[in-house]
Design a protein around this nucleic acid. Structure first.
Length: 442
DNA sequence: CCCGTTATCGGTCGCACAAT
DNA sequence: ATTGTGCGACCGATAACGGG
């Protein structure tokens, strides 16, 4: 019952064998086969060089490892945000030579043809006319260069090309000698990694919104990230896939639609579960931050009423995390603390987890007392309104309602079936009057 | 350290594509 | 408005010149 909430999104872990431990093993294995000195290879290139047969470990095949990594990395950001850069900048400032620590052997790129020409003319002209306007000269000689014959321009261009080749050679050598990443030469091989905030790593367990329609699910599941990259129809990916979509039978399309609908239901449930363990302020903040679109009705369902006791979290981990927060130094970023707590929690013994399970139990017991106590302070109208908005609370209030509505029934265990029917019928009538408060229950 | 010039690299962002 | 892909547009930094 008190299984770690953060695992909620990995429900398929057991089925596939990719447990937390095995995932750690995978990463360690990948690290192990990486070339030692090369810390600066760009991601795509580095990945290409990975020998998955060497990464593989029982019971997983090379292909399975590769596929799991691709799935994992899709959930990660591979660029830095401004706040992160600011943190980095602050660290950089601590280095007193931060802006002067350029390697003395770093090759310098040659000047472009036009600049070479401008510089040549400028120094010649300035020697004869001291005190001339630099800016004006630059502009003038720039125009002069345009008027030059193609032959002369080609001469400058060739010189530049040669100088640049020399520079590239030097740069390659320099990079190799200093274990730096070599610059990418050809533009056409430039490949951008998909950028998407697939949820900040602040909360990995934050549920991911499924596609809106069956078609979206179809597209999503046939992307290279899921299938392993074979189809990859390039930029025409969507075009090709939509063609395939058209070729699907009505039945097959329905299957996607239905599955998508199911995913959406699960998402909604997970989202509510997630939001429920936050307080009102945090919830609003998160909703704004993530631009979560939740129907107002559902939001209403989860709005706190004045004085309403808050339903405690059913996850032991949450309480453990709170304990950690009390003692941890505040300088550590939130997400880091959260991660650390997660790790520790995983290492916990059943006995220690049990300690927190007891806290959960105790808090739930208290809540089960407090809620009816608060509930009875409401007017009948408010009570009906409350139950309509939060039908799940009925389990804590049923007893109170029964006692209040049918105090006589408490003693009559041996009622005839006819009176039972009559009682239920009258309850239904009352419920209708009071705002259908029992409708949700039956 | 600014002006003013240009080619290059690294990296981000916007866009098109079709269906719902 | 979303689903994944990849292209091109765009930005900033960089080199040299030398006087204010």
């Amino acid at each position: 019952m008190n299984e770690v909430v953060t695992e909620a999104g990995e429900s398929g872990a057991e089925a596939t064998g990719w447990s937390q431990e095995n995932l750690q093993k995978l990463l360690a294995s990948m690290k192990g086969i990486l070339p030692k000195d090369d810390k600066t290879k760009p991601y795509k290139k580095g990945l290409k060089a990975v020998d998955w047969d060497k990464v593989a470990f029982p019971p997983f095949s090379a292909g399975e490892c590769q596929e799991r990594w691709k799935r994992l990395v899709r959930k990660m950001r591979r660029f830095r945000t401004l706040p992160e850069l600011l943190d980095e900048a602050q660290e950089l400032l601590l280095n007193p030579f931060f802006d002067k620590n350029i390697h003395p052997d770093l090759p310098k790129p040659p000047n472009p043809p036009k600049m070479t020409y401008i510089r040549k003319c400028m120094s010649r002209y300035a020697r004869k006319n001291p005190g001339v306007n630099v800016v004006l000269m630059t502009k003038t000689f720039s125009k002069d260069y345009e008027k030059l014959s193609d032959k002369k321009k080609a001469k400058y261009a060739k010189k530049y090309r040669l100088a640049f080749e020399e520079y590239s050679r030097k740069m390659n050598k320099f990079c190799k000698e200093n274990n730096l990443r070599v610059p990418i030469k050809k533009k056409k091989h430039k490949k951008r990694v998909t950028l998407k905030y697939e949820g900040d790593d602040k909360d990995k367990d934050f549920p991911r919104e499924p596609p809106w329609h069956g078609f979206g699910l179809f597209i999503s599941e046939h992307s290279s990230g899921v299938t392993g990259g074979e189809p990859s129809h390039g930029a025409s990916f969507i075009r090709v896939m939509s063609q395939h979509w058209k070729e699907l039978s009505e039945n097959e399309k329905q299957k996607y639609n239905k599955r998508c609908a199911q995913m959406k239901r699960e998402y909604k449930a997970k989202l509510i579960k997630y939001l429920d363990r936050l307080d009102e302020e945090e919830k609003q903040q998160l909703i704004e931050e993530k631009e979560i679109r939740i129907p107002k009705k559902i939001l209403d369902q989860h709005k706190m009423h004045p004085g309403e006791p808050m339903m405690p979290s059913r996850s032991g981990f949450i309480y453990f995390h709170l304990d950690i927060l009390k003692h941890a130094e505040k300088s550590m970023p939130r997400k880091e603390r959260f991660e650390k707590a997660r790790e520790e929690w995983h290492k916990f013994s059943e006995a220690k987890k049990n300690h927190y399970a007891k806290i959960v139990e105790e808090n739930m017991r208290k809540f089960a007392e407090e809620l009816p106590a608060w509930f009875q302070t409401l007017s009948e109208e408010e009570q009906g309104d409350y139950l309509r908005k939060k039908p799940d609370r009925i389990v804590f209030l049923q007893k109170y309602i029964d006692e209040k509505r049918e105090p006589l029934d408490l003693h009559s265990d041996e009622k005839t079936s006819t009176t039972k029917v009559a009682t239920r019928a009258s309850a239904r009538l009352r419920a209708k009057k009071d705002g259908n408060m029992f409708k949700v229950h039956h």
